[in-house]
Nucleic acid binder design. Structure first.
Lengths: 229, 229
DNA sequence: TAGATTGTTAATCGATTAACAATC
DNA sequence: TAGATTGTTAATCGATTAACAATC
């Protein structure tokens, strides 16, 4: 996965692209999609350039922070002027990989899974569901939002043949690891986990938790603070 | 509760609860739900005590970090022994407010909204949907997963009369702020935002972003890193 | 030009991790 | 008891924020 060079043995001569990629802080990666949304609305209003002060004000961030985040995408701004809106959108989208769309499998066609399958906007973010899987036979053979639902036994073989790399996990906690194991057996390298369980993965596979319950907990906690005074 | 007076100036007599509540770091709050999930599986297996080493190993965290997180809930462990599993679960649930269930309104009965309405597990986390709202007349008057869908014009009055404090936003970006304004007008103080827009709120109101697109971006980025070498 | 803005280095802040005495 | 574990203080690490020279 994200192995670090243990010591600086001639690290400078190494191809920069690789090194640079890994060095982007996670908080920056989380903020970048938000910039795109704001920039798109600016573009719609006909704006051609934008400063980090402008972006920062809208998203309530520090301008320096925005500037650093943008720098990771390789964009170059013009002093006194700012950044070209169109160019900036393109740079971030390219950086985040929204252009090269990835086909994905979804496991667990329950309430949450069904919603994700029907969420057209994911296409904008480079995610396309090509098949869903569920152990419930009554769901198999049907389609949900145009995506075929198949039995679990077809997952591994199909993932291999279709060269699928992304799996979305929307199964209950107790089935999560088992489903993840199937995904990995099928060659899937990235798992978007909506179950509340931590998933164990083989090397060179990444799990990102959707953290539904984390954010809900944060919300309730903050509400308690507000109401309690 | 937990806190030690910085110096021993009879600090024990001071009301600690308020101060303590605010001082809990957000990362800790995000991790706590994960502990509960693990502890529940331990309980199911009949385990009665657990050490932070044990928890940390399972969730791949630092034991000291786990100990600090748990301390925020007010739980007290026994050296050499660990923590009482049952007691610990109760302490975290109480701390996160999962016991006192909150009634919530959902705005935007689209694909994502429908899924959330059908997600029974939210009840375990103290969230209960009592009504949904959508501007599409064809959806109004019906029920989704047992929750009535109403027109937007009924939102403010109903929220006030029912003393609703939590709103879940599952509308498209362009309608997000407007919907949030309605929620706030109805007296709602906490908004769980699934739209990609940053929401502006009045004082004493909290927004927590579900960050679907943030985590998806993280996932795709990490995948690119893995595949690219 | 003058002044706003970028790009970058330094200072600050806060969270994580290490160290260790207290303890059952 | 001996040793594992808690609770807490100190050290480290990394991200955010401040400062400022370069620049169009």
């Amino acid at each position: 996965m994200t192995s670090k060079p243990a010591d600086d043995n001639e690290g400078d001569a190494v191809e920069l692209s690789e090194v640079d990629l890994k060095v982007v802080p996670e908080p920056s990666l989380r903020r970048l999609p938000g910039y795109v949304h704001f920039l798109r609305t600016l573009r719609q209003r006909g704006r051609e350039v934008v400063s980090t002060t402008h972006i920062a004000k809208d998203l309530r961030l520090d301008p320096t922070q925005v500037r650093k985040d943008l720098a990771y995408t390789g964009i170059i701004g013009r002093p006194k002027v700012g950044y070209d809106v169109e160019e900036l959108i393109a740079a971030i989208e390219r950086f985040l990989g929204w252009n090269n769309s990835n086909d994905a499998f979804l496991v667990g066609a329950g309430a949450l899974g069904t919603a994700l399958l029907g969420h057209e906007r994911f296409a904008e973010y480079g995610l396309r569901f090509v098949a869903a899987f569920d152990q419930d036979p009554s769901k198999q053979g049907k389609e949900i939002h145009g995506v075929p639902v198949l039995g679990m036994h077809k997952l591994v073989d199909l993932a291999r043949r279709m060269h699928i790399h992304i799996g979305v996990l929307t199964v209950p906690a107790q089935g999560a690891q088992e489903a993840a194991d199937l995904l990995m057996e099928g060659g899937i390298r990235a798992i978007w986990n909506f179950s509340p369980r931590r998933i164990e993965v083989v090397p060179d596979t990444v799990v990102v938790d959707a953290e539904l319950y984390s954010t809900l907990s944060l919300l309730k906690r903050n509400l308690t603070l507000i109401m309690g005074r």
